[in-house]
Design a binder for these strands. Sequence first.
DNA 1: GTTTGTCGGATACAAAGCGTTACAATCGGA
DNA 2: TCCGATTGTAACGCTTTGTATCCGACAAAC
Lengths: 239, 239
Amino acid sequence: MNNETMCRILLVEDDLKLAKVVGEYLTANNFHVLHEPDGARAGGRILDENPDLVILDIMLPGKDGLTICREVRPRYAGPILMLTALGEETDEVVGLELGADDYLAKPVRPRLLLTRINALLRRTSRLERLGAVDEGMEPRVNIGSLEVDTANRTVHLGDQVIELTTAEFDLLLYFARHVGKVLTRDQIYRDVRGIEYNGLDRSIDLRIARLRRKLGDDGKQPQRIKSIRGAGYLMVEDQ
Amino acid sequence: MNNETMCRILLVEDDLKLAKVVGEYLTANNFHVLHEPDGARAGGRILDENPDLVILDIMLPGKDGLTICREVRPRYAGPILMLTALGEETDEVVGLELGADDYLAKPVRPRLLLTRINALLRRTSRLERLGAVDEGMEPRVNIGSLEVDTANRTVHLGDQVIELTTAEFDLLLYFARHVGKVLTRDQIYRDVRGIEYNGLDRSIDLRIARLRRKLGDDGKQPQRIKSIRGAGYLMVEDQ
DNA sequence: GTTTGTCGGATACAAAGCGTTACAATCGGA
DNA sequence: TCCGATTGTAACGCTTTGTATCCGACAAAC
């Protein structure tokens, strides 16, 4: 991620005072900070917002950070930075095993946090996340007769292989990971192209059209990627 | 939901004193609060009003909150926030399993409640509810020979496929989920278009006409979607 | 029974959304 | 640096959707 759009960080932290301090510091350093105090909702929030990075407190009401990390990993490819109170050293190992990318002990030192964040973002650029063989992410996504394999970036429809270009594959993978959800252009531009949607651009529509053609989907009566007029697009499970 | 219309919250709570406090607090915070003290009537009320959010007390005379939640889930897609007295911890798990989206222990702290409500509303916009694979919602609705499949947004009449546009499908799904109920224009505009009915607009009448035509329903003698003069429209079960 | 106002169906038209094609810019490998 | 493949831009036209209008049906009042 870079200057195209501001980096979006989701901070999962129940300690509101701490969250405020951290949030303000990161905002001052040109990040767009989202805050979620409730562990029970954190998982959904991560998947919905698809932030560039997640800061995840381990001790949370509702649901603890380790559980969230494990649950969310198969469907969220971005970096997760765990926060833990002193004396929970052992959690570090567990956390990293469950898919966290880094680990920081409380009390939080804002400067140190910022350093770690930048390191993580450098390591895992958006490009890499689309790339996909991130540990923990499910390597294959099935939507009816369609199979998307992230490991070697291949797509099968039934028994035949579909040749997709880079952009087409990225788009398809994004839809495949959000089957049954209406995806707005704002979301698609943000998550797939990494730029802000300006309300006029049509490039994604064109990508969709090309993708549909290769998937044998008619633009007039699509069976896989439906157009939701005025809203966006929706991938459905066929047959 | 957003600035188009004020957010409508249905509060199911038999403790009138509590209901009054909560209701006034939410009203002051720019919500439109509906109140239902009777558990036995709560289910019907939820389906009729189709509020943007339901606050559901677990301990209720008539019928308990868990039962209501389970019964209503397949036909109500909005967020449900459960309230429970202290010491009923175990209910949390059960509640979430039955389709509640969040859970709050009594005594109710208005500020906290407000925070939770806003979080839930952010998560579950009207757009998302169009999406379809919401957990707990029934994926298919049958009305006699008519079958509406929300998972892939298809409609079958007998053995033939009916091609509907986005708007037509949304409208049909809404009627299908409220078979046998007279739906006023106020309700339809609010729930399907997400705007307030101004008393003059005729766009829904036109949508109905187009839908009827595709369903093979004559506008003069409709067999599926009846016009209720002075009130609204009514979908009936077959012939 | 006639009149009058209201409601809802039907048609025509206009605006907006989206699919499609052609072409230009860009990328990536010889 | 060149060339083909990929990706985005521009333009066009069809489809969808809403607005305006007209007209017939129904209901209440006379």
